[in-house]
């Protein structure tokens, strides 16, 4: 038996031993795609179909209406405040949790995760209990002429709560995976804390940071339940884009509702494209780690 035949047989054996027969492959692929089609692709297609059901002119009118623009502005302002703040929190929390050992770490991580599992209804409600007119700080705020609930600050705070875990959860496993050797080396060579962070740590995690920011931003723009409780629904003033969708829908203006919804869906799709770009950059970059997909695994291993 010549060596080349041996290699070929080996390759064939390898292929057959680690893949399934073609019909199984196509079957599994078909089932997976059918599942995604039923639960994902058809509903999203419906959004776009309904958005353009009454023609492009209606669509443009719906998204160009002053109240839609005001809602868009509020949504962007909210995201512009929430994302940087949660980014700073995510970096701080990840540094403390990933680079140091201390007791109670699991409880702390659970606490960071909590907003993710708390019902949005509850997250909105607790801020009303805190800052509402009859809430804990209500009378004090009122006496000082400060408005939180039913105004922009309330919407920002509720959104902050809901999106709190996102950057931190991306960064903790990533920083953990990198270990502390590089930073320790930098410090022993005389680098200061901030210097170490900006020169050593940040370059290592930059794609994770970007990915967390993208996710956080998507969530911040799309939050509905919690914001709905604290917004007061004042048209053109405290309506965010997702709330505006609900209002239009309640006005029997479903074409316009789906038009604005399609805008949000498009925003989500852009986010996902950005995420993919980040991932491929991360894979090709020198310091890049497996951006999104590798992290949880790394966390499992450490």
């Amino acid at each position: 038996m010549s060596s080349s035949t041996a290699v070929r047989t080996l390759a064939a054996a390898r292929a057959s031993s680690t893949t399934e027969p073609a019909f199984v492959r196509f079957g599994l692929l078909g089932v997976a795609l059918a599942f995604l089609g039923l639960f994902l692709i058809v509903p999203v297609a419906v959004v776009f179909e309904q958005a353009f059901a009454k023609g492009g002119a209606t669509y443009l009118a719906a998204v160009g209406e002053p109240e839609a623009l005001a809602a868009l502005r509020l949504t962007l302002i909210t995201a512009a405040i929430v994302v940087p703040v949660n980014l700073v929190f995510g970096l701080a929390a990840a540094w403390a949790i990933a680079k140091f050992e201390f007791t109670g770490k699991s409880a702390l991580i659970t606490l960071i995760d909590l907003p993710f599992a708390v019902s949005p209804v509850i997250s909105g409600m607790v801020f009303v209990l805190l800052f509402g007119a009859r809430g804990l700080f209500g009378p004090w705020l009122d006496a000082h002429g400060l408005k939180i609930i039913f105004a922009t600050p309330g919407i920002v705070i509720a959104t902050m709560f809901v999106t709190l875990p996102l950057v931190a959860r991306e960064l903790i496993p990533l920083m953990h995976a990198h270990g502390t050797e590089e930073e320790e080396a930098a410090v022993s060579l005389g680098a200061g804390g901030w210097q170490t962070f900006f020169r050593v740590t940040l370059p290592n995690i930059k794609w994770g940071v970007l990915y967390g920011v993208i996710l956080c931003n998507a969530r911040a723009m799309g939050e509905f339940g919690a914001v709905s409780v604290v917004s007061g629904h004042i048209r053109g003033v405290t309506n965010t884009l997702p709330l505006h969708v609900e209002i239009l829908y309640n006005e029997y203006n479903s074409a316009a509702a789906f038009a604005v919804a399609s805008l949000l869906a498009a925003l989500a799709l852009v986010t996902l494209v950005a995420k993919r770009l980040v991932e491929s950059k991360a894979h090709s970059g020198r310091n890049g780690l497996t951006a999104s997909t590798g992290e949880r695994k790394e966390q499992d291993e450490h």
């Binding site: 994902l40 509903p43 999203v44 339940g225 969708v245 919804a261 989500a268």
Partner: peptide, 26 residues
């Protein structure tokens, strides 16, 4: 495959109200 892979995250990025409307309409 890349498109499908990207779409998997959509429910996370899509506002839940939009998801609800879309699912009900479907």
């Amino acid at each position: 495959r890349a498109i499908v892979d990207g779409l998997v995250d959509l429910p996370f990025a899509l506002p839940t109200a939009v998801g609800g409307l879309a699912l009900t309409a479907t």
